[in-house]
Amino acid sequence: MDVFMKGLSKAKEGVVAAAEKTKQGVAEAAGKTKEGVLYVGSKTKEGVVHGVATVAEKTKEQVTNVGGAVVTGVTAVAQKTVEGAGSIAAATGFVKKDQLGKNEEGAPQEGILEDMPVDPDNEAYEMPSEEGYQDYEPEA
Rank of each mutant, 00 (worst) to 15 (best):
A107W: 06
V16F: 13
K60T: 05
K80S: 03
V26W: 14
V66F: 12
A140V: 06
E105M: 11
A30T: 06
M127S: 05
G31V: 04
A89L: 10
S87P: 04
S9G: 10
K21G: 00
A27R: 08
D119M: 14
Q99P: 05
G73T: 13
A27G: 03
G14C: 13
P128H: 04
P120R: 12
S42M: 14
G7S: 15
D98G: 13
K21Q: 04
V74E: 01
A85K: 02
E13K: 14
P120E: 06
V49N: 02
K60G: 05
V15F: 02
G47M: 09
K96C: 14
Y136W: 07
A124G: 10
A90M: 14
A91V: 12
E131W: 06
K60P: 01
E46S: 12
A85W: 11
A124I: 04
V26H: 00
E131T: 12
E126R: 07
G47T: 13
D115C: 05
G67Q: 08
G7M: 13
N103A: 02
A69D: 03
P108A: 06
F4M: 02
G31K: 13
M116L: 07
A56G: 09
V71E: 02
A56H: 14
K21M: 12
L38H: 03
A27T: 03
P128Q: 09
G25C: 12
A107R: 13
Q99G: 12
E130V: 09
T64Q: 11
V16A: 07
A78D: 01
E130I: 07
V95W: 08
T64M: 10
P120K: 05
E83Q: 14
G86T: 13
V40H: 02
H50P: 01
T59A: 05
E110P: 07
A107P: 08
D2M: 03
Y133T: 07
Q24G: 05
Q62W: 08
Q109C: 10
T72V: 05
S42H: 11
M1H: 00
G47E: 03
L38V: 08
V15Y: 08
P108T: 11
K10W: 09
A69Q: 05
T92F: 15
V52Q: 01
E131I: 06
I88G: 02
Q24M: 14
N122V: 09
E57P: 02
P138K: 06
V52P: 01
G101T: 15
D98W: 14
E137L: 07
V66N: 01
D98H: 10
A91N: 04
G93R: 07
A76K: 09
D2H: 14
T44H: 01
V71M: 09
N122L: 05
I112H: 11
A69M: 03
Q134A: 06
E130M: 09
E123S: 08
E105V: 07
K58N: 03
A19E: 00
V118C: 06
G31H: 04
V74S: 01
K96W: 13
E46V: 04
G41N: 02
M1Q: 00
V55T: 01
G93K: 05
V63T: 02
G93L: 05
I112Q: 07
L113F: 08
E61M: 12
E123T: 14
V16H: 06
V26P: 00
A78Y: 15
N122Q: 07
G84E: 08
A17W: 12
K10Q: 02
S42I: 09
Q99C: 10
V71C: 05
E126M: 09
S87T: 06
K80P: 02
A56Q: 03
T33R: 01
E105W: 01
A11D: 00
E28H: 04
Q99H: 11
Y125A: 04
G36E: 02
A85R: 03
T72W: 06
K12D: 00
Q79C: 06
A18K: 02
A91C: 11
M127C: 10
A11C: 15
K43R: 06
N122R: 03
T64K: 07
G36K: 14
Y136G: 06
K43W: 15
V71Q: 09
H50T: 15
S129M: 11
M1W: 00
V40D: 00
E110W: 04
V82E: 02
D135Q: 10
G36F: 10
Y133C: 10
A27F: 11
G84T: 15
A91S: 05
Y39E: 01
A107V: 07
K21T: 04
G51W: 15
K60R: 09
E35N: 11
S87G: 09
G36H: 15
A89I: 09
K45N: 01
A124N: 01
G68T: 15
Q62M: 11
L100M: 05
V82H: 03
V40F: 08
K23P: 00
Q62H: 11
K23D: 00
T92E: 03
E137S: 10
L100H: 03
D135K: 04
G132L: 12
V70I: 15
K80G: 02
D135I: 10
M127Q: 10
E105F: 13
A107N: 07
E83I: 04
V40Q: 00
M5H: 00
V95K: 10
E131M: 02
K80I: 07
A89C: 14
E114S: 11
G86W: 13
H50R: 14
E35P: 01
T59I: 03
Y136P: 13
M5I: 01
E28Y: 05
K43Y: 06
D2L: 11
Q62C: 08
A30K: 02
G106W: 09
K45P: 01
K96H: 06
T92R: 05
K34H: 03
V63Y: 09
D135W: 09
L38N: 04
V16Y: 13
L8I: 02
A76M: 05
G86R: 05
V15K: 00
G25H: 15
V26R: 00
G25Y: 13
K10R: 04
S9L: 14
G31W: 15
V52G: 01
A85C: 13
T92A: 07
N65C: 13
G51V: 12
D119E: 06
G41T: 13
E61T: 07
E35Q: 03
G41H: 14
D135T: 08
D121T: 11
V82A: 12
L100D: 10
E35W: 09
K12T: 14
V15A: 03
Y136M: 14
V77A: 14
E105P: 04
K43H: 04
E139S: 13
G67R: 10
K43A: 04
E114T: 15
K32N: 02
K6L: 12
E137F: 12
V15C: 06
E35C: 09
A56I: 11
T44G: 04
A85D: 02
K102I: 09
V95A: 06
L38K: 07
G41M: 09
I112M: 11
V82N: 03
Y39Q: 04
I88F: 02
A107C: 07
S42E: 09
T54M: 13
N122M: 12
K45C: 14
V52Y: 05
Q79I: 09
Q134Y: 15
E137Q: 06
D115S: 11
A27Y: 15
K32W: 13
K102V: 03
V49R: 08
G84R: 12
M1C: 00
V95Q: 02
V95L: 09
K97M: 04
L100Y: 12
K10C: 03
G14N: 06
E110V: 07
G73L: 12
L113N: 02
